[in-house]
C-alpha cells in the first residue's frame, strides 16, 4: 500500500509469522517442571507471611492497616517486676496472632508498616488446603514460616545510602559537609571508617551479597 516499505511484499507478514514460530520451536521451552523440580523463584516472591513472635509488641498497626481485615490479634498486659525500679513495668503479651490467607490479598502493607520487623515475606507457596477454614494460620504456624525467610537482599550499589549511613558519614565529616555526604554514593560512604549502622564494612566497595539484617530498621538516632 504505502511506498515507504511498510507493505512491500504481499505475504511478508505471513512469512514473518511462520519464521517466529519456527524460531521458537528451536529454542528451549521456558517450562519449569514444578512438581518434579522446585521452581526458581525471584528473591522477593510473595508466598506467605511469616511472624517473628519475639519482635511483636502488639502495636496493632498491621491489623489496622490491613485492607482486608484478615489479621486477628489478641493480647493481655503483664507486669514485669524489674529489680531496682520504682514500679513494675507493663508488657504486652501476644495471645493470638492469626492471618486468614483465604482473605489476604498479598498486598504486603502489614509487613511494610510493622515497626519492629515482626512480619516477613517468605517465598513458600505450598500451603493449599482442602478446607478453606484451614487457611487461617495461627501464630505457631506463622512462626514456623520464619525458617523459610530468605536473608534480605544486598543493598543496591547504585541506590541512595541508608539514613544511618548518611547520618554517620555526616557526623564523621563534621559540620558543614552534610549536603555533600547526603548525596554521596554509598561506595564513597562506606570507605569512611567507623560507621555505626553498617557492621563490618567490606574491604572492597563492590561486594553485592552483604547481609545487613539491621540496616532496614530505622533506629531512634536516625535523625528524623
Amino acid at each position: 500500500m504505502s511506498e515507504n516499505g511498510e507493505r512491500m511484499m504481499p505475504g511478508k507478514g505471513l512469512l514473518d509469522g511462520l519464521a517466529v514460530t519456527l524460531k521458537t520451536l528451536t529454542r528451549r521451552a521456558g517450562t519449569q517442571q514444578y512438581p518434579d523440580v522446585q521452581p526458581d523463584l525471584p528473591p522477593r516472591s510473595r508466598g506467605v507471611i511469616a511472624l517473628s513472635e519475639e519482635n511483636c509488641t502488639v502495636c496493632m498497626l498491621c491489623a489496622r492497616e490491613c485492607p482486608d481485615w484478615c489479621i486477628y490479634i489478641d493480647s493481655h498486659k503483664e507486669e514485669v517486676v524489674v529489680p531496682g525500679a520504682a514500679r513494675a513495668r507493663q508488657r504486652n503479651v501476644l495471645d493470638r496472632f492469626d492471618i486468614d490467607f483465604s482473605l489476604c490479598m498479598y498486598c504486603g502493607i502489614c509487613i511494610e508498616v510493622c515497626p519492629f520487623d515482626a512480619l516477613h515475606w517468605t517465598p513458600e507457596f505450598e500451603y493449599a488446603e482442602t478446607d478453606v477454614l484451614d487457611l487461617l494460620h495461627d501464630k505457631n504456624r506463622l512462626g514456623e514460616w520464619m525458617r523459610t525467610v530468605p536473608p534480605p537482599p544486598a543493598h543496591d550499589v547504585l541506590g541512595e545510602p541508608s539514613k544511618e549511613e548518611a547520618t554517620a558519614a555526616r557526623k564523621a565529616a563534621g559540620p558543614g559537609a552534610a549536603t555533600a555526604a547526603k548525596t554521596a554514593r554509598p561506595a564513597a560512604v562506606r570507605t569512611t571508617p567507623g560507621t555505626p549502622a553498617a557492621p563490618a564494612p567490606p574491604p572492597t566497595p563492590v561486594t553485592p551479597p552483604e547481609p545487613r539484617p539491621s540496616a532496614e530498621e530505622p533506629g531512634p538516632e536516625a535523625g528524623r
Binding site: T24, L25, A29
Partner: peptide, 13 residues
C-alpha cells in the same frame, strides 16, 4: 509436541 514447543512450552510429559 510441535505446537507446545512453538509456543515455548513442552507439552505432555
Amino acid at each position: 509436541k510441535v505446537m507446545a514447543h512453538m509456543q515455548g512450552r513442552v507439552g505432555p510429559m
